[in-house]
Design a binder for these strands. Sequence first.
DNA 1: GTTGTTACCTGTACGC
DNA 2: TGCGTACAGGTAACAA
Length: 254
Amino acid sequence: MPELPEVETIVRELAPRIIGRRIVSVEVLQPRITRHSTEDITRVLPGRRIENVRRHGKFILIDLDEGALTIHLGMTGQLLFDTSPTPYTRVMFTLDDTLLLYDDTRMFGAIEFGSARVAKLGPDALTELAPEKLKRKAHIKAVLLNQSVFSGIGNIYADEALFRAGIKPTARNISRPRAKRLIQVIDEVLREAIDSRGSSVSDYVDTEGRRGSFQNRHRVYARENQPCVTCGTLIRKTVVAGRGTHYCPKCQIR
DNA sequence: GTTGTTACCTGTACGC
DNA sequence: TGCGTACAGGTAACAA
């Protein structure tokens, strides 16, 4: 599932291959993917030149000579160059001399003209974050997943960061020192994951079809009933904020 | 405004 | 082998 490190990896690969290119045509095979778009992308995109590619949270922003295109990969979205369409190919972009496919089995992803949804997001999780924003009544895990607090953290990195910070996922109203520590480890985890080209726990691959390797360095995520790397206590799995949540009952306290 | 729950969606794993 | 069911989790919409 693409979170900030996976999206960052994809953006770094996209940039040299699409910046400066012109969009020749767009074919939407699954209209659901463009459900958020106020414009028909098959009509407004052809002829436009790609000027930049960037990321905010889990969103990919493609700046055009006029307007912008926003792509969210959802759970299973993939951007792939010059491959044959599959039954899960939802949108096909023909650039000058390149074919870029958007594949998405579960169709949680979305492609839209403009950046309206990005404007509603909190600051990117790799920027300097304010500890006081974490002081809320909700479970800290839910706060981390709330993209309007700050954007880019999903289920994997929320669990990994809370473990490294020694904070139980169900903690509420965390103190300022603990919030500062949490922000520090979020930065650390995200940067390590980017260095490993992200985590491939389900079907995440980059634009060349390669898998990331950070899943080999997960300390709690998907490690239920395995010994904690720090204390040996068995990692537990529960549900917090409606999501599978992994934690060490000894290392992570309120 | 904040918090919590549910729906969307389909491949995979599992039990029978 | 084949079937039914639970589960995975991104955001949006809704209820409290």
